[in-house]
């Protein structure tokens, strides 16, 4: 668990982070969103003590970070920096294995881990292992940066716009990979992103910052359904907010389980989101879908009207 307690950081007259209090429970993903310059990167740097706060404190698993030796602390925390920052004089493999090497892993274990991570981020190990960073595209470098942060399998992960330079398909794949890893290993993740859809997809909680202050935090659904002010509303989509709400509302919530549609059509899962159901309706030119709630072992029907009205 990461707890930020009235955290403040000033740069001259600029208050980069202003009395920020935030709790990220163990095993959850928290997204920091907000306009450029609102203090997202500064917040991450305060967590791993790259910079020291002017006020407030950071608790990591209950311990004040200020009392932990910074180098050891950082080796426990995977960190993807915004500017990627691969070591240009080292091969991709050596870049990824930096922290495992510091932790004294055996060469065989390191080599296996490097290949595993390159596979994970979608880079063929045989092709990329021995290359230098300058021989990779920006997006490929960014993926190596993510692999480097994951290398020693840290419990805590700070990611500063980790997928910003990726094409939509690769980004989608890596978001999926992150969700898998997180579900499997229960990492605690703080991710900075400008992409509200990414935040909605990945995060269990989203924190909206403005001018270093926390404006609103909550589940993606809370933010979409009840934005605290016009700033948050604009941030979570403005006029398209309604469409995003479909992305976070499960089909099961709107399904009428008293009617079994009895269609030959493949039913949609109750835990799928409404946007997927709507997409199927539009694609099929139909206004009703069969629903299967596998967990509860029941069938029902979702109509177009159910999608629109709660």
């Amino acid at each position: 668990m990461i707890v930020l307690d009235r955290l403040t950081k000033r740069y001259g007259p600029t208050v980069a982070v202003d009395q920020l209090s935030l709790t990220v429970p163990t095993g959850s993903i928290c997204a920091l969103v907000g306009a450029s310059g609102c203090g997202k990167s500064t917040t991450l740097r305060l967590i791993n003590r790259l910079i020291e706060p002017d006020g407030g404190r950071v608790l990591i698993e209950g311990t004040d970070a200020a009392s932990l030796p910074p180098v050891a602390l950082r080796r426990r925390i995977g960190y993807v920096i915004q500017s990627i920052g691969l070591f240009p004089h080292w091969s991709i493999a050596r870049n990824i294995s930096t922290v495992p090497e510091l932790l004294g892993w055996t060469p065989a274990r390191i080599a296996a881990r490097v290949d595993e991570l390159l596979d994970l981020v979608g880079l063929d190990p045989a092709l990329y292992r021995h290359r230098r960073p300058h021989q990779l595209s920006g997006g490929q470098q960014q993926r190596v940066g993510v692999a480097r942060a994951l290398a020693a399998d840290p419990d805590l992960l700070l990611m500063d716009e980790p997928f910003g330079a990726l094409d939509p398909v690769t980004r989608d794949g890596l978001q999926g990979a992150l969700i898998d890893i997180q579900a499997r290993t229960g990492k605690t993740v703080v991710i900075v992103t400008h992409d509200i859809d990414e935040a909605i997809r990945l995060a269990s909680r989203i924190a909206v910052l403005d001018g270093g202050r926390l404006i609103q935090q909550g589940t993606p659904r809370e933010l979409l359904a009840h934005p605290a002010n016009s700033f948050v509303e604009a941030f979570v989509g403005g006029p398209r907010r309604g469409l995003r709400l479909l992305q976070v509302t499960p089909v099961g919530e709107r399904t009428d389980y008293t009617v079994d549609h009895g269609d030959a059509r493949e039913p949609i899962a109750a835990d799928a989101m409404l946007d997927a159901a709507l997409a199927q309706m539009v694609a099929g030119g139909i206004d009703r879908l069969p629903v299967l709630d596998r967990a509860a072992g029941r069938r029902g029907t979702l109509s177009l009207a159910d999608v629109v009205t709660s």
Binding site: R45, L50, I81, F87
Partner: peptide
């Protein structure tokens, strides 16, 4: 360049390292 230096600090290299 600043980025690799910051990355080195960020992932836990000691100042000497």
């Amino acid at each position: 360049p600043a980025a690799p230096v910051q990355a080195a600090d960020g992932i836990g290299l000691s100042p000497a390292g």
